[in-house]
């Protein structure tokens, strides 16, 4: 088994899906000849040619709008938005048309498409290159919003997203693109959307996270467990919407305590929904209030102060300790 980064894993998934299904095409700004600014689509142009690896004009709304027409007419476009901070121009099409195509037409027309975009902090870039705004997409009915956390899950979830009959916004934690490599199965097995992944099992505390925060949280838990001997369950949310509330509730019914770690700002973020779901489905099992570790409700600071905005290891560790001690 080779070891791959998330960039390599996503690139491999795209190669395999385009090989397997000739209705799949990739499109976006700089994705073809240049292979994407982060090189996620490298080699696809050489292998599949300009019709299926398509450099587009620089217009995010036009890209997603054209993708919808392609999807209705039998193709499976996988579009790339260069940074999620430029994806707000796609929201009008996503909310106004893409997510409604199936319901509006009673499933006569569908929109099997994937809109990929890197999100989150950690690359020392300009303004608009560091936000975590998954909540915008997750609040759109008819749309699936997926965030992988590791090379292997990025691979499996992207296969699932491309094979899914409905539109998927696939947000890639760019901080994790090349941060680590892992042992890898390239077996073309798709993962399951709207399903959490239990990363480690435990009895005393449930921790839920996703994206770049998952890896950081996992590191904190490893040290915390070593220091305190606590038994901690870690859940990778994977699909932000529609959310797998039952897996989370089942875990909390077992542990009685929960912490949610999210990179996004606090108010109305996915953590709010997770806590509401725990309230709906596991309130009577709780032995402590559910704590959330999140970004603050401020405009994303430039990168000099970014590390104080994004949940840090000490903040996560304190939340675990406080929730267990309650």
């Amino acid at each position: 088994m080779p070891k791959l980064t998330m960039v390599q894993a996503i690139n491999l998934a795209l190669h395999q899906e385009m090989e397997r299904d000739d209705t799949v095409l990739i499109m976006g700004q700089d994705v073809a000849v240049n292979g994407g600014v982060f090189r996620l689509t490298d080699g696809l142009f050489d292998k599949f040619g300009p019709e299926r690896a398509l450099d587009t004009p620089l217009a995010e709304g036009g890209i997603i709008g054209a993708m919808l027409g392609m999807a209705i007419n039998g193709l499976k476009p996988v579009g790339e938005i260069q940074f999620s901070g430029f994806a707000y121009l796609t929201l009008a099409q996503l909310e106004g048309n893409v997510a409604r195509t199936r319901s509006r037409s009673l499933s006569k027309f569908t929109a099997p498409l994937v809109l990929r975009m890197p999100y989150g902090g950690g690359v020392r870039a300009l303004e608009h290159h560091s936000e975590s705004k998954e909540a915008y997409f997750a609040h759109t009915a008819g749309l699936k919003t997926v965030i992988p956390s590791t090379p292997q899950t990025a691979y499996r979830l992207l296969l699932a997203a491309i094979r899914d009959p409905d539109p998927v916004v696939f947000m890639e934690p760019k901080h994790s693109y090349r941060a680590f490599k892992e042992e890898f199965e390239a077996d073309e097995e798709a993962g399951e959307l709207s399903r959490c992944r239990i990363v480690r099992e435990g009895e005393d505390l449930t921790v839920v996270s996703w994206g770049a925060m998952l890896h950081r949280t996992e590191k904190v838990i490893e040290q915390f467990v070593e220091d305190t001997g606590a038994s901690v369950e870690l859940i990778d949310l994977q699909t932000i919407a529609p959310m797998d509330g039952n897996t989370i509730a089942q875990s909390v019914r077992k542990t009685g305590r929960a912490v949610v770690v999210q990179e996004a700002q606090r108010t109305l973020g996915p953590a709010s929904e997770i806590i509401a779901l725990i309230n709906d489905k596991a309130l009577m099992y709780l032995e402590a209030p559910v704590k959330r570790v999140t970004g603050f409700d401020v405009v994303m600071p430039y990168f000099a102060r970014e590390n104080f905005q994004i949940p840090s290891e000490p903040r996560i560790r304190d939340a675990l300790a406080e929730t267990l001690a309650f």
Binding site: G61, G65, G69, M70, N73, L75
Partner: peptide, 10 residues
């Protein structure tokens, strides 16, 4: 309008 273009491209 962009949907029409996507239909046509396909």
């Amino acid at each position: 309008i962009p949907h029409a273009v996507g239909l046509a491209y396909a």
